[in-house]
Simulated assay, not measured.
Amino acid sequence: MNLSQLYYFRKLAELEHYGKASEALFITQPSLSNSISNLEKELGVRLFERVGRNVRLTSYGSEFNEHICVALSEIEKAVNLMAQYGSGLSGQIRLGTVISIQRNFLPRMLNAFRAEVGSNIMFDIHQDTTYGCLDGLNEGKFDVVFCGQPPNKKDLATVPVTTQNLVLGVDKSHELAQRSSVSFSELKGYSLVSYRQESYVYSVLESLFERFGLTVKQAFNDEISAASLVVAEKNIVAVMLETLDDLALNDFVSIPIDEQRDPFYTVYLVYKANAFHSYATERLIEFVKEFTELSE
Rank of each mutant, 00 (worst) to 15 (best):
L32G: 02
F287R: 14
S191E: 06
Y131C: 05
S225I: 03
E139Q: 15
C147P: 00
K41F: 08
E139A: 12
A157E: 09
M82K: 13
L95G: 03
I75L: 15
V231C: 11
A13W: 05
V216R: 04
S278K: 13
I99W: 10
V161K: 00
S37V: 09
V144H: 07
E186K: 10
E186I: 02
L110F: 06
A71W: 07
S37L: 12
F276E: 13
R179S: 13
S73F: 06
G169I: 01
R108C: 06
T292R: 15
P30E: 07
I255N: 06
S119I: 09
R261D: 07
R103I: 06
Q127H: 13
R46L: 11
D258I: 14
R94D: 07
F209H: 12
N2E: 12
V253W: 00
E49Y: 14
Q102K: 14
E116I: 08
Q29A: 03
D251M: 02
Y190F: 15
F9N: 05
N38P: 05
T243D: 13
A232P: 15
T292M: 08
R114K: 15
A177G: 08
F184G: 08
K153H: 09
K153N: 13
N38L: 11
L284E: 04
V253N: 01
I121F: 01
E259P: 00
N138T: 05
S90A: 15
Q29W: 00
D258A: 12
A219W: 01
N165H: 07
L134P: 01
I101Y: 00
V182F: 03
A24F: 04
V55G: 03
L214F: 06
L229F: 06
P107I: 09
V170H: 05
L81R: 14
F209V: 10
A157Y: 02
G140S: 04
V51S: 10
T97Y: 02
L32N: 03
L15Q: 01
V193N: 03
